[in-house]
Write a protein that binds this DNA or RNA. Structure first.
Lengths: 246, 246
DNA sequence: CGTGTTATTGACCAACATCAAACTTAGTGG
DNA sequence: CCACTAAGTTTGATGTTGGTCAATAACACG
């Protein structure tokens, strides 16, 4: 059987908590309303008052804020299986937007369906809360990354995070991953200008930490990249997978 | 009857959700183990595996990370009633520390007590989740603040946030508030050097946006401060209080 | 092929960091 | 009360990182 849309969500949650068959079954029963988004379109916009949560099924999305003067800051990156607007269950209006970095296929689930699911299962309630709390942990790391690391360290750190997260989801190759972001978007993530991102990328390539062909980036030397980015995957709170687990 | 320790927590949660008498009563039954911390001492350290949550009762605390090279970044500021490590309910190890900006009196509540409380009340579960989600919203604003605003805007924004949050808790005067942070700490919050913080503060004073005596800061012109900091209180998700509410 | 987007380069500039010293303030102990 | 100390603030000089602007090159796509 090919992996279904619900399996994406299940696989994602399985990276942070061990799911039993009962939980998987409950997740499979969630009603998915599928929508497609072109690149650069908002899945959810700042100010919206959503009545559903979205699940990324294919493609990549990012949360962002626009500050005075039209400057944009990305807040987080999202892959298949992610629930980037869980917070809308408790916060009535969106304080930020979510947009498609690539063409995106996403599922929308009514809040009411999520609520009744978590009322029925303390385990699933815990898992979703854990998902939201890990989101918050990643924001914290980004605050530190942008506030206290220089441009070179910041970009290296972002590459490390993306690689580790994609690998956990099975979306990365052995030592490479596809990051479909322009240098301007990387700048919006790192709080840098596009021109400076370009220079930092060249340095990372020259020093052999990465090598890129288009938007596919290969890790040249993981240890040195990790060191350059002052990266430790602690803050991702990934579940340690048993070697003998499926 | 003087406000008890539990009332601090109740008042705090009341700023983000309307609490009924049943919820207040359940909160009052939480077992508080009181501890005092000197200024600059950790309430919780990075790497800890807490079995209890803490509630700030008196004083002010901050979450922080230390990145490579010993550089420190503050992640959030916390006042009386705040629950700065709710995430420890679902995330086993602390990815950051929490320390006392002033002498602090805090209550520690076993996770088990919190869990059984929220199992018993969906309303209280929602309130605590909302508290954690607002935390995350504030982290997002800090990412944008540090990533895309200049030094002047950043400091103004921080002052706005502190003022609005303290006012909601009844901890601010009509147009002034006490912010017991050194300029070096403000720099750690804003991702700036202490020297530059000093220069920005002088400019904010010269332009009449604030005036400070020691660590008490008076708002000289709220509208201009808000504009300078590109501040909108949206992201704090405060509850709109009925005018006729106690 | 054109046309639009993205990447790259160079020249120049501004914001902010760093360093070091002086000054202020608030304790602290005699 | 005063001298002494430690912490924090302020100032000036100087350096560096990263921003801005503008032009060119490389791609991607109809």
């Amino acid at each position: 059987m090919p992996p279904s849309d619900h399996d994406r969500l299940i696989a994602r949650l399985n990276t942070i908590a061990r799911l039993g068959e009962a939980e998987r079954e409950a997740l499979r029963r969630l009603p998915f309303r599928i929508r497609r988004f072109d690149e650069n379109k908002d899945l959810v916009s700042q100010g919206d008052r959503p009545f559903e949560c979205c699940v990324i099924l294919e493609g990549m999305a990012a949360r962002y804020k626009v500050v005075g003067g039209g400057r944009r800051q990305l807040l987080s990156l999202h892959f298949a299986g992610d629930l980037p607007d869980l917070q809308s269950l408790q916060l009535e209006h969106m304080d930020h937007g979510i947009y498609a970095l690539t063409p995106v296929r996403a599922a929308f689930v009514p809040h009411e369906a999520v609520r009744s699911m978590i009322r029925a299962s303390e385990k699933l309630s815990d898992v979703l809360i854990r998902h939201a709390l890990i989101d918050a942990s990643i924001f914290r790391e980004w605050v530190a990354n942008i506030g206290r690391r220089n441009a070179y360290e910041r970009i290296a750190h972002i590459f490390c995070e993306v690689f580790v997260r994609m690998r956990a989801l099975g979306l990365a190759q052995h030592d490479s991953f596809r990051l479909p972001m322009t240098q301007a978007e990387l700048g919006d993530a790192a709080g840098l200008s596009p021109v400076h991102v370009n220079r930092v990328l060249q340095r990372l390539r020259k020093e052999g930490l990465i090598s890129s062909r288009g938007d596919v980036h290969a890790i040249g030397d993981w240890e040195r990249l990790r060191t350059a980015g002052d990266f430790s995957e602690d803050y991702l709170h990934l579940r340690r997978i048993d070697p003998d687990e499926t």
